[in-house]
Design a protein around this nucleic acid. Sequence first.
DNA 1: TAATTATCGGTAACCGGTTACAGATAGTTT
DNA 2: AAACTATCTGTAACCGGTTACCGATAATTA
Lengths: 324, 324
Amino acid sequence: MASIRDVAKYASVSVATVSRVLNDKGYVGAETRKKVEAAIADLNYRPNEVARSLFKKQSKTIGLILPDIMNPFFPELARAIEDTASKLGYTVILCNSDEDEEKAQRYIDVLLQKYVDGIIISSNTILEKTIRELNIPVVCIDREISKEIPTIVVDNKKGARMATRFLKEKGRRKIAHIRGPMDIVNANERCEGYREVVSGEQWFKESYIVNGNYRMETATEVVLELLRQHPEIDGIFAANDTMAIGAIKAAYQHGLKVPEEISIIGFDGIALGKASIPELTTIEQPLYKLGQTAAKVLIKLIKGQDIEKTFYQFNVQLVERDST
Amino acid sequence: MASIRDVAKYASVSVATVSRVLNDKGYVGAETRKKVEAAIADLNYRPNEVARSLFKKQSKTIGLILPDIMNPFFPELARAIEDTASKLGYTVILCNSDEDEEKAQRYIDVLLQKYVDGIIISSNTILEKTIRELNIPVVCIDREISKEIPTIVVDNKKGARMATRFLKEKGRRKIAHIRGPMDIVNANERCEGYREVVSGEQWFKESYIVNGNYRMETATEVVLELLRQHPEIDGIFAANDTMAIGAIKAAYQHGLKVPEEISIIGFDGIALGKASIPELTTIEQPLYKLGQTAAKVLIKLIKGQDIEKTFYQFNVQLVERDST
DNA sequence: TAATTATCGGTAACCGGTTACAGATAGTTT
DNA sequence: AAACTATCTGTAACCGGTTACCGATAATTA
């Protein structure tokens, strides 16, 4: 591949001049500019981004650390981030942390060595201190670590309240909740939202809250057990869509018709919800918007521009489909 | 961050020596090595991967160009590729081409500028010539472009025959096929496999083959229309799982019970199939294995090792679940 | 003892960009 | 005509690694 020196020679100018044309910086005479542009075109020259990165200490690359791209919640986020980054001239390195702090740390080290300009991370295990020591911008998405670090999330508690109230409005009187992992903030918030709505009800029992881990199979198991213990249950609010689908399966296995005999509502609004039969009623997060915002905010920070706020909380929306 | 010169100064040696220790190359005395290692530890030094890339013309990074990570077929592939690459010391840049050749080309240009060591691509629009001109290894996955380029796929035709025969064995006598896009090789192969099995049947009509585009909504529409036209149909082989789920929806909307009145089988074995109700019978591709192989083959090529073959065709497996 | 060889470490050029600084030219002002 | 300024272009150092090549020392051999 042609280098800037080849172009300079071809156009009979110096490399500095070529660089000036390339970056539209400093004085370049009209004639000279034309010569250089012709040379660039003739040689099909593309500046070497690595050399540029070395000098600028910026790579036009961001790191994206997610628990697992196979988790159906993340592809839409990843897509939005990549789209936005790409539009703004950045490239995205994908990393799967498996919720493992050590693994995340290893990825971070590699990303730093590659001079990534910033990182978007979804993690609950990483420490605030670790992040601050990186000396590059970091944005958290979906999981919040600290109010100090820019974070993009939705109003989980409100969404949970909406979901639970909706089931009540649908005439459900014994509403259970399958919650997410204890160490994930949004799972706690969703559980809290559910609690706020049902704690005043005289029918509410602590055992109506069961532990899930955001995965389908486990949800099916625990809901099956729940229905055996509490045949009176006629509504379930699952803390995410994946578990909600697991719950639908459990309901069928238990011989219950959805939505006739039991209503089930999820949270997230992932594509999966439209693929299930019946289609899933859910609290929809503006996933694309979240990813887009994360990328925009991160890139603003990279460019040294300041951002309006450090905590972006988006609204959720109830999408009624056929499971309620 | 500390540079190699800082380490050299701290250890009172030259940068060459530090580099030798770092890369275990050339003679370094035991004493000297210890000093250098101590310095590296004390200064918490990590070599700058960008500087290294510049000199080596290798970045320990590979590009992954997929049509769309939101398409549920790709996350597992991406995960496998990332896992494998990461284990072998490579990092993955994610690109979404949207089946758009121009977009893919733009990504390729950017990737080249960043000195990626190789590219894994899933595309049917890109030309063989374009790829050969890149001068870096390229591996195709899921979509085949040319026998010259290393390709990782499954035996689509065989899988399609298996699916169609399976429906016959289940006693289905009027089996339709929803095919994938005309410009995708695997869609044609799957259609061909279906044809081979049904073309001898006296009941077979050309209109039993309908065009889908691998998307769910479209599949629902065309199947609905198909069922109106041909109420006799009692089996459907959809060219991918997403369309199979669309077909299940259509069947329900048409008042048919799955699998009692109509059997539906998909292709791919994506996670979605386990989330649908009824769970989807499908021809499962070893997705993780495919991704893993793609990464391994690519990295072998990058390292200049030679590979056994240029065409890796994996077997598919029929997974019977509840839709047949 | 002298010559040879293995081992070790340093200097400096290189990868391909960017940019501070300085020098040259042309146009304007006094 | 001299001085000054605006515009334009080039030289060379720098980013942080790698490595060819050379010189020095110590160990081995004749």
